[in-house]
Amino acid sequence: MRALFGILLACLAPVLGAPSALAQDSWPSRPVKIIVPFPAGGSTDIIAREVAQGLTAKFGQQFLVDNRPGASGTVGTAAVAKSPGDGYTFLVTASHFTIVPSLYQQITYDPLKDFKSVSLLVTIPVIVVAHPSVPVKTVKDLIAYDKSHPGKLNFGSSGAGGVNHLSAELFNYLANTHLTHIAYKGTAPAMQDLIAGHVQIMFDAVLTSLPHIRTGAIKPIALTGAKPSPLFPDLPTVAASGLPGYETSSWVAMFAPAGTPPEIITQVSEEVHRILNQPAIKDRQQSQGVEIAASTPQQLDDVVKAEIPKWSTLIKKVGVTVE
């Protein structure tokens, strides 16, 4: 009898001892939430919805984008950090993820300890744009106008601590200008105020500026990256316009709460890579100035670990602070 009982235990042990494996086999069995810590309509939100649509089609469960803006993306990011690592919550965010730890001393999460990397999604060039009423066409014009009209030029951003904010602060530092920062809760409201003329300048993702450039609602001044864009073959970079050493760009990436099973991380990462490299999606994104950068989790880990100290050094050098 005792021998029979031992045999039964041995047979049942793989099942009883691996409930998470059973759960993973049926994943996803209900809708999955993708939290975007910025308002709808910005570049991060646009990319998140592209990915969510593809994941829904692949896995047969809804992947729902949940916009939770506030405090430069820290509100939504903190919500993901506190979520169970069960594969039913993900984060799609931007470069803010590696910037805000050096700006906000009181954030409630650790970007290295509280998250698991899933995949880098895209890289997005940043462009300097202006309201048509601003009498400048080039970087040199912008610098000269600011110096001759101190206090007249404001720049809008999606919030303190984002790449577009720091791009402008780096510009101020290198050009000795005094563009005044006006922070918004996301790119969309900042862009609305630029179009309305309530702010005069933005350092913005090409993805969200391009439609308004095409209609003439705003005008391009320069690109912040290291090279020109095929979308704007005659538009120079800031560095080539008289500020050598100036370079910034942005990215969008996907993360999961710490503790998410590696099997789920791998499934989602591989599917994201497939989705974003579909010819139709790749061509559409490239036509909007977006470069597909789907990566492995390890490659995204490397980006995060490299960028946190990079932005920290820049923030200290430029002297950026937030209230």
Results as ranks from 00 to 15, higher is better:
E291A: 14
E50N: 10
S209D: 15
H181V: 01
H212L: 13
L153Q: 00
G41D: 10
P233H: 04
A79R: 00
P257Q: 00
V318I: 15
G151I: 01
Q105H: 12
A78K: 06
G87K: 02
E291C: 01
L300V: 04
I195N: 07
K317I: 06
L314Q: 05
G17C: 09
V128R: 00
A79N: 02
N277L: 08
A258W: 02
P244V: 13
V65D: 12
F255A: 08
G225N: 13
Q299E: 15
V65I: 15
A18S: 11
G197K: 05
G197S: 10
V65P: 09
L4V: 12
D234I: 03
P37Y: 07
T248R: 10
H96I: 07
P257G: 08
G242F: 10
D204F: 08
F90E: 09
P125G: 10
L166S: 06
K33M: 15
S167C: 09
K305I: 14
V126H: 01
P211T: 12
S29T: 12
Q299H: 11
G186L: 06
Q200G: 12
L91F: 02
L91A: 06
V134K: 00
F115T: 02
K317C: 07
P236A: 10
P28V: 00
I275P: 05
Q62S: 15
I265K: 01
T266R: 10
R49W: 03
V272E: 08
L121C: 04
T74C: 12
S72R: 00
A196C: 13
V199Q: 01
P230V: 14
N164W: 11
F255T: 03
G54V: 03
E291N: 13
T89M: 05
I221D: 12
D193F: 03
E247K: 11
V92H: 00
G41E: 05
V80Y: 00
V320A: 07
E50M: 07
R2G: 09
N172Y: 09
G151R: 04
E270K: 11
Q24G: 11
G42H: 04
